[in-house]
């Protein structure tokens, strides 16, 4: 899948999470996503970036503009070297939380994207990739 543009953003603080949201918004507007779709992907990005910060101990977000045939989309990858998630199925279920939140982060982000992929190894880290297509 050809990648037209890549931004790499560190996630070390709450301000970084805001910056990730803003970058995702800019790219979503660039590829012509509708207002509702923009809002969905930005919200998903916010959930995942917060997870990276709060549970992964910080990490990196990669924001890419991708092409597949005539379709354009934004693909986001969140990576951390944190403790990892022992039980993915449980973590994806709604209202599961270890951080005192509502526990809608992972499951919510999945519902807000067209594609969702997660890899996690205990003691190594977690990588979540989501995409939203126009």
């Amino acid at each position: 899948m050809p990648v037209a543009k890549t931004d790499r953003l560190p996630i070390r603080s709450g301000e970084d999470v805001v910056r990730v949201r803003q970058t995702v918004r800019t790219r979503a507007i660039e590829i012509g996503l509708s207002l509702v779709d923009q809002t969905k992907i930005v919200t998903a990005a916010s959930e995942l970036a917060r997870n990276t910060l709060d549970y992964g101990g910080g990490g990196e977000a990669r924001v890419e503009v991708v092409h597949e045939g005539a379709r354009r989309g934004v693909r986001l990858t969140f990576e951390d070297q944190g403790p990892g998630i022992p039980d993915l199925a449980k973590a994806l279920a709604d209202h599961f939380t270890t951080g005192g939140g509502l526990g809608l982060g992972l499951g919510g982000a999945k519902r807000l994207s067209n594609e969702f992929h997660i890899e996690s190894t205990v003691g190594v880290g977690t990588r979540v990739t989501i995409a939203r297509w126009k």
Binding site: V36, T43, D94, L102, G108, L112
Partner: peptide, 13 residues
């Protein structure tokens, strides 16, 4: 905003 409301409902909130 409408887009925010739709997203929140989709999010499960």
């Amino acid at each position: 905003r409408p887009a925010v409301a739709i997203t929140l409902v989709e999010l499960g909130l």
